[in-house]
Design a protein around this nucleic acid. Structure first.
Length: 425
RNA sequence: GGGGGGAUAGCCAAGUGGUCAAAGGCAGCAGACUGUAAAUCUGCCGGCGGACGCCUUCGCAGGUUCAAAUCCUGCUCCCCCCA
């Protein structure tokens, strides 16, 4: 018997808005229900910001319902103007396809595609949107929306009123396509629920309206809260940029570190949103954490759980070990075994250098750790550089063979958290 | 159309002929302290070079001067007031 997943989602902080919570709860309890979320194929990888919707789908499945991930292959060719102040660059068909195949692999880590009635599905809206004729579209979809409704939206109106900005017909039409998606899925996949970020509320409502007007049927919508960190930053960004799920874009080590660095005030929220731990377990973790916040137990569990799902068991073990050494009590040369260095090499920026300059300053520049010699000197002078675990206090430090562990590795630390491994090639 | 004020480094903001690469604040970087935190304290903070030096900056373009962010001329943009 399927469960009322709405209750679970609410408990875990996934629900910002729901079109009809009471009725939707009934539906969840009475039958296996399909719900979908759209993913924009604007990049070849998802990032941590996408984890909320993905986890939402995963919970749906765990409660016995069917998750559908809709890849926006068609809508991605148009571009959602929601929350955007500028016209977007259109993606080419090839770009969209390439991005989609990568994104699909990432989603597959979270969803089961072979478990009977609640098997997950990935569909590409290009497959139906591309077949839609213009006349047909204007008569069968466009007729149901007034321009008055479409320009009432703030971000549309602001772009209409500001002559500097303006909005094209293409982007203006976007909402109708998304509404049509929902309608199509309702008909062909029996999908009665659309979920999305809070900025998607109006687009979802448009779909619900279209289904009601054309089919006289009832569909439901649900939005997730937009995440901000406790310190007011947009969730998912670090100084170095977006935290991606792709190990090519963000190494598993950096990914793990991102979660380890979560603010105490955010940890509980994150554990609920980004792990499958039962609420009671999370409560227990948090009560331990409250007694000894300095141990970062909650962050460690959070980081371990998510990294395991995204990057796998092996990666977690490796990344934990590397983190322990790099951030543990001052490590000594003996700790830096050859195997460990091999692993560190995979997790931090590293470079294979043929001809090693003789001065540390030059190495720092050569390896790309510092932009100029002046910058390198400044960093050394202020005590921010250490070599194989020992601080360098000499501005003109000269490199020699002894600095290379096992004859080939040199571990540089820049500041508190940046590492760079130089490999002699 | 008339009158007044303004444009300074990533941002805010002093400076009104030399001592100005330019006070102060914020942001940023690093160190100490910590929990790989917050707060606090210290140093750095236009660029480059082995810290003296060189190069590029004070809206733009010219000019006066041994010397200009500072004076003069023209231009561009912004704000306020009067019509």
């Amino acid at each position: 018997m399927p469960e009322n997943v709405l209750k679970i989602l609410q408990e875990r902080g996934f629900v910002e808005w729901c079109s009809d919570p009471d009725e939707l709860s009934q539906v969840f309890q009475s039958r296996v229900t399909s719900g979908y979320i759209g993913f924009d194929p604007t990049a070849d990888s998802l990032h941590v910001g996408h984890l909320v919707p993905i986890m939402g789908l995963a919970w749906l499945q765990r409660a016995g319902h069917q998750p559908i991930a809709v890849a926006g292959g068609g809508t991605g060719l148009i571009g959602d103007p929601s929350g955007k102040t500028k016209e977007r660059q259109l993606l080419t068909l090839e770009q969209v396809e390439r991005n989609l195949s990568e994104i699909k692999k990432q989603i597959e880590h979270f969803l089961d595609f072979d478990c009977g009635a609640s098997s997950a599905k990935i569909v590409n809206n290009y497959s139906w949107l591309s077949k839609l004729g213009l006349i047909e579209f204007l008569r069968d979809v466009g007729k149901y929306f007034t321009v008055n409704f479409m320009i009432a939206r703030d971000y549309v109106r602001s772009r209409i009123e500001d002559p500097e900005k303006s909005i094209t017909y293409t982007e203006f039409s976007y909402i109708l396509l998304q509404a049509y998606d929902f309608y199509h899925l309702y008909q062909h996949e029996n999908c009665a629920l659309q979920m999305g970020g809070n900025d998607q509320q109006i687009n979802i409502i448009a779909g619900i309206d279209l289904i009601r007007k054309k089919l006289g049927a009832k569909a439901y919508g649900l939005t997730y809260p937009l995440l901000l960190t406790a310190s007011g930053q947009k969730f998912g960004k670090t100084e170095e940029g977006t935290v991606w799920l792709s190990p090519v874009r963000t190494t598993p080590y950096k990914f793990y570190q991102f979660w380890i660095n979560a603010d105490d005030r955010d940890v509980e929220k994150f554990l609920k949103l980004f792990t499958f731990l039962p609420i009671d377990d999370i409560k227990e973790v948090m009560s331990h954490h409250a007694r000894h916040p300095e141990r970062r137990e909650a962050q460690k569990i959070l980081a371990g759980e998510i990294t395991r799902v995204v990057h796998g068991d092996n990666a977690v073990e490796r990344v934990k070990k590397v983190s322990e050494i790099l951030f543990g009590e001052a490590y000594t040369l003996e700790d830096l075994t050859c195997e460990l260095l091999e692993e560190i090499r995979q997790e931090v920026p590293s470079g294979n250098v043929k001809e090693i300059p003789s001065s540390l300053v030059d190495v720092l520049v050569h390896v790309g750790a510092c932009a100029s010699k002046s910058e390198a000197r400044r960093l050394i002078r202020s005590g921010g550089v250490s070599l194989n675990g020992e601080r360098v206090d000499e501005e003109n430090y000269e490199i020699d063979s002894d600095n290379f562990l096992y004859g080939k590795y040199m571990l540089l630390k820049l500041g508190k958290k940046r590492y760079h491994l130089v490999e002699r090639g």
